[in-house]
Amino acid sequence: MKYEIPKLLKEHENLIKGTFRYSNEISFKREETKPYESKLGGCPYLENNLDYPIGENGKPMLFLAQINLADLENLVELPEKGLLQFFVTNDDLYGLEDPIFVRYIESYIENEELLVKEHPYGNEEYIMNLPFSHSGKMYFKSREMPMSSSLDLFQETFMDKLSEEEYEKLSEDCYSSDSRIGGYPYFVQNDYIGFDDDDFLLLQLDIDDECGIMFGDSGNCVFSIPKDALKNRDFSKVVYDWQSC
């Protein structure tokens, strides 16, 4: 649903609308997924067990999510097809201080007989380290959203142009939690990564009851990439952060 400018902020309508971005809001269902579908956890698309990434600590990395890009709408910065896979280091900090791995698979096969069917490392220890209790299928809904009030850029954009009352109202309206691709991230504490106009939100995973998503104490995670790097399909430039209360 598109953000409707309230009466209090009508005189700033053009300024606010100038920050609008499309996002694809994610909902989750505890459903079985095909190897190439958009999913939270489970088994990623693998043609061979040897394709599964191992972290610098020698452990199999945690597979958080896979996005089938054909499922998304209005996100012109992304490739039109292919898969994006998100892995973080397997430790009790969900890889916060260690290298991450985002893999782009431009083309994939759909013959499931030729693909890995079960997670090659999905043992009890691995499952215990995941920031969610259930895997599931992702569903997407496109919408336009204004800039998130948790960004440093929000303060830079609006602080000097709005009255205190107006600024407080817009800040409340632009509380952009929930899981999404595109649009703007929400930071539980601070915008440590300095997300700005030149960045793209590749993935935000937020608290979800259906699949039990939670990073730390009521936290979420953000994967961001510079738009130039995204244009060049250079996913080594992805920045990852998670925060909790």
Rank of each mutant, 00 (worst) to 15 (best):
L170I: 05
F235P: 00
I26V: 15
P44H: 01
S236P: 00
E172T: 13
F140R: 04
Y184S: 02
F158E: 01
D206A: 09
G42S: 03
Q243E: 07
E80F: 12
P6D: 11
E77V: 00
G58E: 07
M145F: 02
C245G: 04
I109Q: 14
I207V: 04
L64I: 10
N57K: 04
N49L: 11
G219K: 06
L46K: 02
L78S: 10
D173Q: 06
N68Y: 03
T33V: 13
S23Y: 06
I225Q: 04
A65V: 15
S176R: 08
N220P: 07
E37K: 07
Y167H: 15
K34Q: 12
K29A: 13
I207Q: 09
L62T: 05
I54F: 03
A70M: 13
E144P: 03
L75Y: 09
V238L: 05
H134G: 00
F28K: 01
R233T: 14
Q85W: 10
E13T: 14
G122L: 01
L201G: 02
L93D: 12
F86Y: 08
L83W: 10
R30I: 02
I67S: 06
K17D: 03
D234E: 10
K2N: 09
D198H: 15
K81Q: 05
Q243C: 09
E11T: 15
Q243S: 13
Y126A: 01
Q189A: 13
D92Y: 09
Q155E: 13
E37F: 12
P99S: 08
E106P: 05
H119A: 04
L201A: 05
M1T: 12
E210R: 12
S177M: 10
N49A: 06
Y184M: 02
I181A: 03
P146W: 05
Q85H: 12
E124F: 05
Q66R: 03
S107W: 11
L115Y: 04
Y52E: 08
V116S: 09
S148N: 07
V76L: 10
T157S: 12
I193P: 03
P60V: 12
E25Q: 11
N57Q: 11
I127C: 11
I16W: 01
F235R: 00
K227R: 15
R30E: 15
F235D: 15
D71N: 07
G82A: 10
K17E: 03
A70G: 09
L205A: 01
Y22I: 06
K10N: 08
F87P: 00
D178S: 15
E13Y: 04
S38M: 03
S179Q: 13
Y36W: 14
K17V: 01
I225C: 02
K39H: 07
I207M: 10
S142N: 04
D228P: 03
L64E: 02
I127W: 07
A70K: 13
F140Y: 12
R143E: 15
L202I: 10
C211G: 02
K169Q: 11
D178W: 14
Y3N: 00
S23A: 13
N220S: 14
R103V: 05
M138N: 11
K39Y: 11
K59M: 05
S133W: 14
